[in-house]
Design a protein around this nucleic acid. Sequence first.
DNA 1: ATGAAAGCGCTAACAA
DNA 2: TTGTTAGCGCTTTCAT
Lengths: 335, 335
Amino acid sequence: MARPRARLKDIAEATGFSANTVSLALRGSPRLPEETRELILEAAARLNYFPNHIARSLVHSVTRTIGLVMTDIMNPTLTLAARTIERQLSLAGYAMMFAASDSSVENEKRAIGLFLSYQVDGMLIYPANHREYDHIKVADEAGTPVLLLVDLPDSGLDTVTIDDRAGAYKAFRYLCRQGHRAIAMLDGGRALGNFDKMHGALQAVREAGLSEEAIMVFEPEGHAPAHGFAAMARIMESAPPPTALFASTDSLAIGALHWCRENGIAVPQDLAVVGYDNTEISQYGALPLTTVNYAADEISRIGVDRILKRIENRGSWKAPDIRLIEPELILRDSA
Amino acid sequence: MARPRARLKDIAEATGFSANTVSLALRGSPRLPEETRELILEAAARLNYFPNHIARSLVHSVTRTIGLVMTDIMNPTLTLAARTIERQLSLAGYAMMFAASDSSVENEKRAIGLFLSYQVDGMLIYPANHREYDHIKVADEAGTPVLLLVDLPDSGLDTVTIDDRAGAYKAFRYLCRQGHRAIAMLDGGRALGNFDKMHGALQAVREAGLSEEAIMVFEPEGHAPAHGFAAMARIMESAPPPTALFASTDSLAIGALHWCRENGIAVPQDLAVVGYDNTEISQYGALPLTTVNYAADEISRIGVDRILKRIENRGSWKAPDIRLIEPELILRDSA
DNA sequence: ATGAAAGCGCTAACAA
DNA sequence: TTGTTAGCGCTTTCAT
């Protein structure tokens, strides 16, 4: 029980061949006679052998592992992204290591350091902060390809992400066209230095011929539904109260809806609500919620493709590439 | 740019010491003079050195990595579990590899094989099927500790999980006491060989002095909200229709609620709904949903603790331990 | 057709 | 206090 695992050497001794021959046989080398190979494969099966990937990695300096660093997997968008990424990697024969930063740059640094020492072949990063990303650049420059899933302006890093400016623009254009003139914007990104959605909102409001004051900005104290819930009390105290709400994530929107339900605000009759980050949960979630489709699935697929291509190219690498995917509104009975 | 990473040897050459001394210095050996250590640390920093964990793992036959295999991370319960597990592992200085089986035993086998060849120190498994688990036992017996997050009867494997029988019992006892006599049970576990919830339901119904026919069993065609949605059409066609619904996961319940909303069924007035697997989403989710608290958080914490203890004990291992956590009902305005 | 030897980057045992 | 040697399990020349 729990005897040491079989090694090449054990198979070698069991069959009378050398470790080298065993290695060749297991990898199906054509230059070995049928007979020899079968003998070895049989012994391997009998000894319950399976290869030690760690040793192989050490020889090749390639681990076929990639690291995924995310802020918080409880955010349904990121959950979906994580799932798709794992699937794609698995199909490509890569293993995935996972770490959560909880939006803390310190945690993110630690995770990246961990992954580097584990010699991952590349990393997909959903960064904690839009301003502090030197540690990410350093990793990339030291030779471990990094792909960002959020656009960090001027980072010079490879990126595949949603065009949040365009997404917020579409949401606000839609609300303006519905006649709303007082739109609350519950925006969790500002504190982390992300003003993309704000810029899109402003553009839409301006194009509609409205004053910028049509947008009432609020910052939640976190990203969970509870924070959306808490913020609503403040929001609805405004005079006059908004007739529409844009929430920068579905999680916040869900909390906001909960507050409305408890406080007798009918959605969408009394308050139109637009979320951001469409996921299965909200799609089938019995919530009167129009959302901007973050398309986490699509960026994940494209992102994995991209980084694997880069890893497999090794030396030859061109300019960093920033790919923005434009999201669409998913209309339901809201707004 | 992308020059090969610095190794101990490089620092050795840069400082004039031997690789061994450098290794000692970097690990803070007390038997080195202050001066030497500083010299070496400085050079290491200058060369941007960080340790190659792969090489270290090869020497120690210990990777400080554990593998997590789950059916589907989109299930909010499992999302929460994954997060907690990652956190706990990270605190303990372990890295986590992740793989999803999508409830396919084939995928699960592949994932486990992958993890074994990556030499993980242990695995946490949320199994795909309640009957086929030989491949899991084999891994454990071959010396890689496995901890199950679902109880597989007679598996003889270490387990930390929710007592689903007790959970379903409480849910049905509650519904019976509210006067319900026709309770639909949307149960996604049966197809996979899990009858725990069914047993709990039967017990409650019997104790209430009702016939077993008070339970109307339905099997969804999958685990996503969409499957709960689809099943509802069949469920509400029954004559007479049920006055209460028990859904074996919150995802199914969410889909069911969506169907109710689209079909003018008021919850909980027309139909009481009890879900299973309480998560943040449903807690703040603006849904009139009573749920059984799966306590994914708690089992994850206990589970990680357990497996790390076992790993660190190495040789000495006693009888397998099955720990059942009893869930509670989270009442809201439903039922 | 098969084997011997060297080496991936690191650590541990033993010398000096 | 520091260096030398051997070896973790595997792959890769290069011999035979």
